[in-house]
Design a protein around this nucleic acid. Structure first.
Length: 508
RNA sequence: GGCCCAUUCGUCUAUCGGUUAGGACGCAAGAUUUUCAUUCUUGAAAGAGCAGUUCGAUUCUGCUAUGGGCUACCA
């Protein structure tokens, strides 16, 4: 058995899409599960679509998610099969192009883009193939002498694969089983272009996968239709025995409507579709990332892993190690999965709840400092323990806890109307005084004393407690009122009571 | 248009010929909570359609429909 080697091979044309992230994740899980190697290769054969910074973005995204690379770009040690950027492998491809040319498996074509365009406009369903190639400008139709002259004159050309028609090509897909397609419907794809001396994706990925000894090609379903071409390429190159196994992953679809998830959907529906924030260097356009939206990488990984794969059990929460342990391509589903943002949020909620309060407090401290609050660590931990379960994100924490740090500036109008009864100011004032005279300082003790006091006075418990909450928080929300008093301290609580009476009774 | 792939609750999915078709998200109701949330309980919610194979089909086959992908000197 050969050592398992898989690759994630994105092209640096912009930020890494979340679907690409999932492809990377499945490659990674498969490699780890089988004690194999995970390579990162950059497919930058289209020089015109290169976007600066995209490669770094890819590496940083994978790193953030805990998808570690063993070999290639972003690996600790690059590895013995480099270079891992296709643009740096120029010198390697030429040899195989010549081999195909010499073996009569490919030919040189001079048709200009304009000529091809007009051909397509002229003939419906025009395809450059066995039917049409003899009516085109190429080394099959031009005299040898003419071809040589054109090449000597540095005329632009492309190399096309010469597909033999009428043969059923079978691709054995690990997820879908046998997929068969007749070679007559495959066109003579461009495999090399003289303009930048680079191969196209089809040739480059076959050559590189072969040379890098890739055993499994795990990629998106959009490659399924061209995989027979790749099989043919392996065959024409004489590598069919070393051909990797294919696994085509179902696509990630839009949550509403139709089509595969695109970058526009994020803006349109208000959630990220990229791992990290990205600013387009040309347009200045901002794309939102999961990281900046407050997601934990573990939650994103967990969510993504289950979009298109499941182990057949009821387990929902998986650590990376558990995913590795349980992952298999056989259990990847065949149909596309709609991106469910609500579920993504739920995963993050779960992960937030699982994090120790100390750890959450540590992150929250940084937010507090940014807002200008210097707070005692134990106090912050205490607050986190009180409010954590009502937050989905670290970024929700401030919204849920601000009243611990700053007195309310205004009071929720609806709540005031409902709970600020005429008798309340007097009762609250008494309560404030009583509070200050208490020896007890813990929530439990205070609860006991205050409740006793209220029932002794025959005051309405619900009304008074809610009014107190209104005075302390400004709204009718939050954890136990006595816990709040404990954290605030009796003095601060009394101050807030006084202020609420001034503000609210002044108005009424 | 041509080719390829897919099709179970609104969504993600389980089921590898015989199940009251299970779980999760979301939704609804109830309980708990002096509030909000959490939590717990309960509920509504699915085999695209039509043939065929079979004692028996969600499961196998075919057709139709629907959805998706590909059809570039892009990946």
């Amino acid at each position: 058995m050969r050592r398992v080697r898989v690759r994630f091979a994105p092209s640096p044309t912009g930020p890494l899409h979340i679907g690409g992230v999932r492809t990377a994740l499945y490659n990674f899980l498969f490699a780890r599960k089988n004690n194999g190697d995970m390579l990162l290769r950059i497919e930058d054969t289209d020089s015109s679509r290169f976007v600066p910074g995209a490669e770094d973005y890819i590496v940083e995204s994978l790193k953030w998610l805990g998808i570690t690379i063993d070999e290639g770009i972003g690996a600790e040690k690059e590895g013995a099969f480099g270079p891992y950027r296709q643009s740096e492998r120029k010198h390697i491809y030429r040899k195989y192009v010549d081999q195909l040319l010499n073996d009569g498996k490919a030919y040189i074509a001079f048709d200009s883009p304009i000529e091809l365009e007009s051909k397509r406009a002229e003939i419906p369903n025009f395809q450059y193939d066995a039917q049409t190639r003899l009516s085109m400008n190429n080394s099959l139709t031009l005299p040898e002498e003419e071809v040589r002259k054109r090449l000597e004159n540095d005329e632009q050309y492309v190399v096309r694969i010469k597909i033999e028609p009428g043969e059923d090509i079978v691709v054995n897909d690990l997820i879908r089983g046998e997929v068969s397609i007749n070679s007559s419907v495959i066109d003579d794809k461009v495999i090399f272009k003289s303009v930048d001396e680079l191969p196209t994706y089809h040739l480059a990925n076959v050559v590189d996968d072969y040379l890098m000894q890739i055993t499994h090609v795990i990629r998106g379903e959009e490659w399924l239709p061209s995989s027979p071409l790749h099989v043919l390429l392996y065959r024409y190159l004489g590598w069919e025995n070393e051909m990797p196994q294919f696994a085509h992953l179902p696509l990630l679809l839009k949550p509403d409507g139709k089509g595969k998830l695109s970058k526009r959907d994020g803006d349109r529906l208000g959630f990220p579709v990229f791992p990290l924030n990205w600013k387009d260097p040309r347009t200045g356009e901002i794309y939102n990332g999961f990281r900046e939206a407050g997601y934990f990488p573990e939650a994103v990984v967990n969510f993504l892993a289950l979009l298109g794969w499941n182990p057949g059990t009821d387990q929902e929460i998986f650590s990376m190690d558990e995913l590795i342990e349980q992952f298999s391509l056989e259990r990847v589903s065949k149909s596309g999965a709609k991106f469910d943002y609500e579920k993504a949020k739920w995963f993050n909620h779960k992960y937030l709840q699982m994090k120790p309060d100390e750890e959450v407090a540590d992150i929250f401290q940084r937010i507090l400092i940014e807002k200008g609050f210097i707070e005692d660590t134990d106090k912050v931990i205490k607050i986190i323990s009180l409010i954590k379960d009502r937050a989905d994100f670290i970024t929700d924490l401030w919204e849920q806890s601000h009243y611990f740090f700053e007195a309310p500036e205004h009071y929720d109008a609806k709540a005031v109307q409902k709970r600020w009864k005429p008798e309340i100011p007097e009762q609250l004032e008494e309560l404030g005084k009583m509070l200050l005279s208490l020896e007890a300082a813990s929530a439990d003790e205070m609860e006991k004393s205050i409740k006793e006091w209220i029932s002794g006075k025959n005051y309405h418990l619900g009304n008074l407690m809610n009014a107190l909450r209104l005075a302390l928080v400004g709204e009718l929300k939050g954890p136990s009122i006595f816990e709040i008093v404990e954290v605030l301290g009796k003095e601060e609580a009394a101050r807030r009571i006084k202020k609420a009476i001034e503000v609210l009774s002044g108005e009424s």
